[in-house]
Design a protein around this nucleic acid. Structure first.
Length: 333
DNA sequence: AAGGAGGTCAACCGCCGGGAT
DNA sequence: TATCCCGGCGGTTGACCTCCT
């Protein structure tokens, strides 16, 4: 049976909404409430499809929408939820008050996914020599047009997933910690660097100058300084639990082992090329395994343990994401 | 200054599931 | 139970914007 169109296509306006149309729709919804979108165009006098009216209201005109750039906190939430939920934008948006699924989806596609891809693509890693000019590899050419700087002005914590994996690996005793507090030493022979050099108070970052090796370290340090100990511990445990699920569904995948195998316990991270290779492998495996992890999320029973205690439940963890640390009390399950 | 390349994001499209009848 | 309607979702598109050459 052929489904009837949501509205008559002929005579309907498409494309960008005008201020006048916005005003009409806003006044109508405020007077009549949301819903019955099919009848909205007719009743409001708009030459638009009902679905278009709904979308315009939901994504743009709603008074409770939050304007402005995605904050670092929101970005962290997006990354973490996407790692466990996949492209379930509406679910993710449900945990970000004032943000729409469309907005998050666009942000992911235009900002975060590329950052993660950059991290995993060795040939695109921009290498900065300590005392020399930027080296551009044969495979990598500076992109033309709009630079990435503007996009990067939105604070980057894009590699939290990677960093927390590394961190939990360290905590499991598989590695010696390679970064502590805010000052880290990627290599004993190199100068240490601080987060404040890369992210200022306005949240603008300069991490694009970091190569993959430095990014890995930076992200680890950034997370440690950004979240309090309790939050970090739970995040790490969350990652661990997720990884267990992944391992169960794909015996060939062990993210911890992948990363651990690239790191010399005594000397810290080896050459950036090796780390790049591992990162690329990790992403390749991740793309295959996340679908399994995504399914696991739906059936997740939260039976994992933290130091012998029951892992917090989902709502509690998500509540924590919005807690500044002052109100959260350790749960005793 | 102009053209072109590439990024952003609002909007569209098609499909699906749930509720109503 | 079958059918229909509607809202919601995720993927995709394309107009517009920015910036480099």
């Amino acid at each position: 049976m052929v489904r009837a169109p949501c509205c008559e296509k002929e005579g309907l306006k498409k494309g960008r909404w005008t201020d006048e149309e916005d005003g009409i729709l806003t006044r109508y919804v405020q007077a009549n409430g949301e819903g019955s979108w099919r009848s909205v165009p007719k009743n409001a006098g708009l030459h638009r499809c009902g679905k278009s009216c709904r979308l315009r209201w939901i994504n743009y005109l709603r008074p409770d929408l939050k304007r402005g750039n995605i904050s670092p906190e929101e970005e962290a939430v997006i990354i973490r939820l996407h790692a466990s939920m996949g492209n379930r934008w509406s679910l993710i948006a449900g945990h970000l008050p004032g943000r729409t699924d469309n907005e998050i989806k666009n942000y992911w596609n235009s900002h975060l996914s590329r950052k993660l891809l950059t991290f995993s693509t060795p040939t695109k890693s921009k290498r900065t020599e300590p005392d020399g000019p930027t080296e551009v590899t044969a495979e990598w050419k500076p992109r033309k047009g709009r630079s990435r700087q503007r996009a990067s002005q939105r604070n980057s914590t894009a590699l939290l997933k990677h960093s927390s994996l590394l961190k939990s690996t360290v905590e499991n005793g598989e590695l010696e910690p390679i970064a502590k507090e805010k000052t880290v030493e990627p290599n004993a022979n190199e100068e240490s660097f601080e987060i404040t050099e890369y992210i200022n108070e306005e949240g603008e970052d300069n991490t694009s100058s970091l190569n993959a090796e430095e990014s890995l370290i930076f992200s680890s340090v950034h997370e440690q300084s950004y979240f309090n100990d309790e939050q970090s511990e739970i995040f790490s445990s969350f990652d661990d639990a997720l990884n267990i699920k992944v391992d169960e569904t794909d015996n060939d995948v062990s993210m911890h082992n992948l990363i651990a195998s690239s790191v010399d316990q005594k000397n810290g991270i080896k050459g950036s090329q090796e780390v790049d290779t591992v990162a690329a492998n990790w992403n390749e495996k991740k793309s295959l395994s996340l679908s399994s992890a995504d399914d696991a999320w739906a059936d997740w029973d939260w039976k994992g343990l933290i130091n012998g205690q029951k892992l917090i439940d989902e709502d509690e963890m998500l509540t924590m994401l919005w807690d500044d640390g002052s109100n959260f009390k350790s749960s005793n399950h």
